[in-house]
Structure formats: C-alpha cells, structure tokens
Amino acid sequence: MTMSTLKTAACGLALLAAPLAANAEDLVVNGEIEMITETEPAAHLDGAVPTVRSGWTFRASETQQLQMDDFENPAMIDADNGMSAWNTAEGAEGKSCADCHGAMEDSMGMVRATYPKWNEEAGEVRNIQMQVDDCRVNQMGAEPYGLDSRPMLAMEAAISSVGRGQVVDVAIDGPAAETWEMGKELYYTRFGQLDLSCASCHELNYDNYIRADHLSQGQINGFPTYRLKNARLNGTHSRFRGCIRDTRAETFAVGSEEFLALELYVASRGNGLTVEGPAVRN
C-alpha cells in the first residue's frame, strides 16, 4: 500500500462519486445456469442494505464476461482438477470421494448453497474445506489437503461448480446461532490502524470507490474465486485475511474460529443470491 493510499483511506475514505453500475445484464453461465445477482435482503439483515448484490454486478463488463462461459473462466481448469481428484482413490483405505458419495453432480449439488453448516455428529459448525479434510483423514486415511491449499481450492471449486444456480440458504438458527452471532459481531468490529470494520466498506460504502477500487458488498457466493489480481483461485478465509491486513491489523488465521464464524455470517448476508463459485473477480 502506498503512502498516498494510506492517506486517502485514513482521512475517512475519500470516496469518489460512483458512476452508474456497470452493464447490468443478466448473468447466465454457459447459456443455461441463470443466476440471481440482485435480490431482496434476508430478514435477519434488518434493512442494512436495500438490495443484496453479487460481486459480479460490481465488475467491469470484460471481467463479467469471463464468468459467463466455463471455457473462458480460468477457474474451471482447477474445478476440472478437483473433479478428477473426486474420482481418484487415495489414502490407506483405497477409496475415492466418489466411492462413498457417488457422482459429485448427484450428491453435492446443495452443499455449496448451505455451508457453513452445523455438523451434529461433530458438534460444531463446519465449512466445506473442514468437511473435505475430515473425510480425507478419517474416511480415506489420506493426508489432509490443508485449508486454502491449491488442491483444496480445486476440490471446493468443483463442489461449488455443481451447485451453481442454487439459491444460497445457510441456516443461522438452532445450534449455528452462537457462531452466527460471533460472526456478526466481528463484521461490525473495527480493526487496525485504519479503524475499519467489514461494514465500513461493504455495507456503508459499497458501490463507491476507494481510489480506483469499486467496493462491492463483500458477498462470498462466488468463492472460491479466480482473481485477476493473482490469476488463481482464492479462498474465503484468505480473502478475509487480505481485507483485515489492509486495515493494518493483525489478522486471524485461515481456519480460525473467528473466520469460520465470519464465513457463516457473511454467507448468510448473501442468502437469496445464487451460488456462483468459482466466479471471476478483480
């Protein structure tokens, strides 16, 4: 971050007036998967934003187009690798994911739309990555991938890809309520020398610009996301880390209780949008 950026951010986010949203054509992937990119906010948002908007609506049309055709979406290379891994036996048990779960398209279609989710047996909220590594270690006798590692993101991208178009509907009540409340508190907590909360940018100032960056609502329905910035898949927790780091704060760790809670809460802010991962973003 340059000094001038800091200065700009420090004096209360000198924000430029936002031009009209980029070409808001409809997002239809491969000419068949119809996405909901704008919708009414869920009741639990309590009117925090008038409309819930996918990150796709904040991107330039050239970036938007990359997500509209799987061939042009570079993330689909990783998703294909994840799909191959799904069908490949690994570990001491000699089993593949498919040996227990069957074809990914048949068994995983609703996963991305409903995670993070309370796991009754484990007595905890889990995200997809935690569930994948739990399966690898305890069911397959294989080495864990590691959170936000390349093969993990490829697997998550594959699982997400078969759930594209499903409406995000993470549960925030019952045993997940405590985690959700913790995530909500984090969302509104100001961090770092710049004293910014998630809400400072993504609730109060989305659609405005931080210098040239068009602030989105910080929705995560498109994760894991291929970013043009680093030309690879990015995980939700790594993205949270980058945001908090940019407030000049010590960040939480990928896989921490805090980020898991924040993942559940931010996912719930996108209830009503459709699963887009692996999406393409700036």
């Binding site: 700009t8 610009y209 931080i210 210098r211 040239a212 960056d213 910035k229 993205r239 940019d246 700036n282």
Partner: peptide, 8 residues
C-alpha cells in the same frame, strides 16, 4: 489501467 486502493 486502474490502480487499486486496497484489493485485499
């Protein structure tokens, strides 16, 4: 070419 303000 735009230069980002933060970009995580």
């Amino acid at each position: 070419v735009t230069i980002g303000g933060c970009g995580g």
